[in-house]
Simulated scan of single mutants.
Amino acid sequence: MSQFSHLNQQGEANMVDVSGKPVSTREATAQGFLVVSDEVITAISDARIAKGDVFAVARIAGIQGAKRCSDLIPLCHPLALSKVDIQFETLAEDNRIKVICWCKLNGQTGVEMEALTGVNIALLTLFDMCKAIDPGMRIEAVCVTDKQGGKTGHWKRDTV
């Protein structure tokens, strides 16, 4: 059984020292879904959400979330992200909105937490902007789908 990297020999929480790790290009992709009503799908496609362009606002929020990950998640390293990309796909047949966040940097630690934070903040922003129409929306299936770089190389989720 592998040991938790964020615990020291005394079992106390600590930030992992990555200073000895080589710098490499690291990327991670995460995704999640917002399950919504027909009314939300229609209001978004007709640009009738009172708070404005939901995808534009959620994109900016997701990017900001990824950049601020270390302020939100204890023991995460502050990272100099070189790219954050947030994409949306409306899946009207399933009454879902898919959010994908891709993060990249040249560094000594991975960007999975940043990608997950970007997805979650974008999803929460969509929820906030649409809750007047459908307070019963739900966020589901948030996960890392792909990561590259570092000693583990390339990892890809088999099923999403």
Rank of each mutant, 00 (worst) to 15 (best):
C103H: 01
L81W: 03
L105F: 06
S70A: 14
K67M: 12
I41M: 01
S19F: 14
E27F: 02
V144Q: 06
A58H: 07
A47K: 14
I86T: 03
I121C: 06
I41N: 01
Q148D: 09
V57T: 15
D53T: 00
E112L: 09
I73Y: 10
D38C: 00
L72T: 06
Q148R: 15
T125S: 09
K147I: 14
Q64T: 09
E89L: 03
L123A: 09
E89T: 05
V40S: 08
L91T: 03
L126K: 07
I49T: 07
A58T: 08
D94L: 14
P135C: 04
I97C: 10
L91R: 13
D85H: 03
G52L: 01
D134H: 12
A30P: 00
E114R: 04
G136T: 01
R96H: 11
L105Y: 04
E114V: 05
L81T: 00
G65E: 08
D146V: 07
V35N: 13
F127W: 12
T42S: 13
D46H: 15
G62E: 14
D85I: 01
V119I: 11
T109C: 02
I139K: 12
S45R: 15
C69L: 03
K21C: 09
I97G: 09
I49A: 05
E27S: 05
M137S: 10
G118S: 06
V40W: 07
M113F: 11
C103K: 01
K104N: 01
K83G: 01
L34C: 05
W102K: 03
K131N: 12
T125V: 01
D94C: 04
L123I: 03
G62P: 10
K83P: 00
S37R: 07
A50M: 09
M137N: 11
E140H: 05
K104T: 00
Q31P: 00
I73W: 09
T125L: 03
Q108H: 08
D134W: 06
C101D: 13
A56G: 14
R96G: 04
E89S: 05
T25F: 06
C130L: 09
Q31T: 13
I121N: 07
A58M: 11
C76Y: 07
G149V: 15
G149M: 11
T42D: 11
V84I: 10
L126H: 07
G32E: 10
L124N: 09
G107V: 02
T125F: 02
A56N: 15
G110L: 00
D128T: 06
A47P: 00
G65Q: 05
P78A: 13
A47Y: 13
G52R: 05
